[in-house]
């Protein structure tokens, strides 16, 4: 154990924790939005994330023809390539999410069956997605070329403001803000909130349930796809099973903040990112998930519905 790290590198840890945390926030939106409307854990969300990382790699290598030893881009070309990668990653994840809803959830929902059947069906979809990626990528890790030169804006209090970290933090904040406005202000957002309050009543109010649920999956997928692009920008490598640990962490973040609650996911994600980074520095990175789960259990003991969660209806298997 090395507590001196905490004082000597505090701000630097905070900064990297914040960027990791914001990636978690975006992924956990995929969980929390779906949970809000369906009261189901979207188990395939980790694979939706994985699809996004593969799409990013595909755009940066296959589509625009860069290789691992190509020079970093500048100016308009850089913005255009990264923008394209972001959009395609989001679209790929969004489409996957809608497909998952269509194949794994819709029929079961129409028949009004038990929740576990949907869970297993989602787990099945998650196996299908990750196995397809494994077969297509021959189990090899995929690296994205370094298109963005990782220059630093300078150091403040020991924290290195690198361009990729800053980019992730600002864009993720903007995206979360837009989403929050969308859900709280727009007509469609109102429909989503209505469905999450009561499926029956929103149907009576003339809301097209299937359409709203599809759109919720789409939005969750778009956000998860954006997270995968940012993840690739910072960490630069992915594998068919990348989704498992990140998805687990993001889901924990959603639960920590109070699942089904957007702002809860926001604070839960950031808290989790900071916690993970700090505990990795103090205890060694192999113990970080243990710390995270211990904290989760402790939080749930005091606040059984998460930090910002409302009293949730009783959920039964």
């Amino acid at each position: 154990m090395n507590f001196s790290v905490l004082s000597s590198q505090f701000w630097s840890l905070c900064l990297s924790g914040l960027s990791l945390g914001l990636i978690y926030v975006l992924i956990s939106l995929g969980y929390t939005m779906v949970y809000g409307v369906l009261r189901l854990i979207n188990f395939a969300n980790s694979e939706i994330f994985m699809v996004g990382t593969f799409a990013t790699v595909w755009v940066e290598t296959g589509l625009t023809g860069h290789t691992n030893d190509s020079q970093p881009l500048h100016g308009f070309q850089l913005i255009w390539t990264l923008g394209l990668a972001l959009v395609i990653a989001m679209v790929a994840s969004g489409i996957t999410a809608v497909a998952v809803e269509f194949l794994a959830y819709r029929r079961l929902r129409a028949r009004g069956t038990n929740r576990l059947a949907s869970l297993i069906s989602a787990i099945g979809m998650s196996i299908v997605l990750s196995e397809s990626a494994r077969i297509l990528s021959h189990s090899r890790p995929q690296a994205s070329p370094r298109l963005l030169e990782k220059t630093s804006f300078g150091e403040v209090a020991g924290a290195n403001f690198r361009i990729d970290t800053v980019l992730v933090i600002i864009s993720a904040l903007v995206m979360f803000f837009i989403l929050d406005r969308f859900v709280n202000k727009s007509r469609l957002g109102k429909a989503i909130r209505a469905v999450s309050m009561s499926e029956e009543n929103s149907k009576l109010m003339g809301i097209n349930l299937n359409r709203v649920i599809s759109i919720t999956f789409l939005i969750g997928g778009l956000m998860t796809g954006a997270a995968s692009f940012f993840f690739m920008t910072v960490y630069e490598t992915t594998k068919f099973n990348v989704g498992f640990s990140l998805g687990l962490a993001a889901f924990t973040a959603a639960v920590l903040g109070g699942i089904g609650n957007l702002r809860g996911a926001f604070f839960g994600g950031i808290a989790l990112g900071l916690l993970e980074t700090m505990s990795a520095a103090v205890l060694g990175s192999q113990w970080k998930s243990v710390t995270v789960f211990v904290v989760l259990v402790l939080v749930l003991l005091v606040r059984p519905n998460g930090i910002f969660g409302e009293a949730i209806q009783q959920t039964r298997v």
């Binding site: 949970y35 854990i41 687990l248 889901f251 924990t252 639960v255 699942i259 192999q286 113990w287 998930s289 243990v290 995270v292 789960f293 211990v294 989760l296 259990v297 749930l300 003991l301 059984p304 519905n305 998460g306 949730i312 009783q314 959920t315 039964r316 298997v317």
Partner: peptide
């Protein structure tokens, strides 16, 4: 501590416990 929780909260905590045991053995 955890069986007071319901539904999906219990699911995530048990999932975490499974991971903890594996990480500890590692």
């Amino acid at each position: 501590p955890t069986l007071r929780l319901r539904g999906d909260y219990l699911a995530i905590v048990t999932l975490g416990f499974g991971e903890i045991v594996r990480i500890v053995t590692l």
